[in-house]
């Protein structure tokens, strides 16, 4: 065995420092596996030719986070009663420090969130990314979109101004025209015969607890499926990851697969093509 020089003082100090820094992470990892999970999330492989269009999903997530943060701040100042709601909105808009910014971001963040969800959906459609094995994730995405629209509907009433009130009167009446279920839906949304204090608190509760809770859970499931199934590469991709169909000419078989390997890849990686 070769002689090993004992570590110098500087090396020892460095080792101790590293242990000190790593200790909390190791502690957490040993008890939860979270560090490994985050590492897996960050360093998982995505196709080499991912496209800028594929940032629309995370952009929509960002818009949702903006909604969540500004919503929490608004809830600190907003009072969901017919007598106070309008005044508290005026107060937030005109008097609270940067209140106009928080409310404006929430108001317009909603539109941006909806637009980004539609754009993201369009991208997934154009890429054919809803196809096997990602069908379930498409359904989860559509559910998030529906819940997002419901957030728009319930949030619209909260300022309790004329726009809010009359749009909601009509909106609830339109729901009420549904066959069989309509009257029950309308009754449930109104929380009574007329739109009033109970409607406002009901919409407030739906808007800031039930629906966002559902959206957060579904976003979690959505992301889990993205990580598990991987990111789709663009349909025009030249790599096997994105190749929709193999070339027509007969190709050498790749081990374990029933489809021939595309020509370009078989040539680039001879070990992948043909049987060994």
């Amino acid at each position: 065995m070769a002689y090993r020089r004992p570590p110098t003082k500087a090396q020892l100090r460095r080792q101790r420092m590293e242990a000190l820094v790593n200790y909390p992470l190791d502690w957490l990892e040993e008890r939860s596996g979270l560090v490994g999970g985050v590492r897996y999330f960050l360093f998982r492989k995505v196709p080499g030719d991912v496209n800028w269009m594929q940032t629309l999903g995370s952009a929509a997530l960002t818009a949702f986070i903006v909604q969540a943060v500004t919503g929490v701040i608004l809830a600190m100042y907003y009072k969901p009663t017919p007598n106070e709601a309008y005044r508290s909105i005026q107060n937030i808009t005109d008097h609270v420090t940067l209140g106009w910014l928080v409310r404006g971001m929430h108001r317009w963040g909603a539109s941006v969130f909806i637009i980004l969800m539609f754009l993201h959906m369009g991208r997934v459609f154009l890429f054919g990314a809803y196809k096997y094995p990602r069908e379930l994730n498409w359904i989860v995405g559509v559910l998030i979109l529906v819940l997002g629209m419901m957030e728009g509907f319930t949030g619209y009433l909260l300022p309790w101004d004329q726009t809010a009130y009359w749009a909601t009167v009509v909106g609830i009446n339109l729901n009420g025209t549904a066959p069989f279920l309509g009257p029950f839906i309308a009754q449930f949304l109104r929380a009574g015969q007329e739109i009033g204090a109970d409607t406002l608190t009901r919409f407030y509760s739906l808007h800031m607890m039930l629906i966002p809770g559902g959206i957060i859970a579904l976003i979690g499931l959505h992301l889990y499926l993205v990580v598990r199934l991987g990111v789709t590469s663009p349909p025009w991709s030249k790599e096997a990851a994105g190749m929709a169909l193999a070339d027509e000419e007969p190709q050498p078989l790749r081990p374990g697969l029933t489809r021939p390997v595309p020509r370009g890849i078989a040539a680039a990686r001879p070990e992948a093509g043909g049987s060994k």
Binding site: V46, P47, M243
Partner: peptide
């Protein structure tokens, strides 16, 4: 095809 995709991403993909 999905198995091929997985393998290709593993070999030639880049980290997130």
């Amino acid at each position: 095809q999905f198995a091929r995709y997985k393998e290709d991403v593993k070999e030639r993909g880049k980290p997130f």
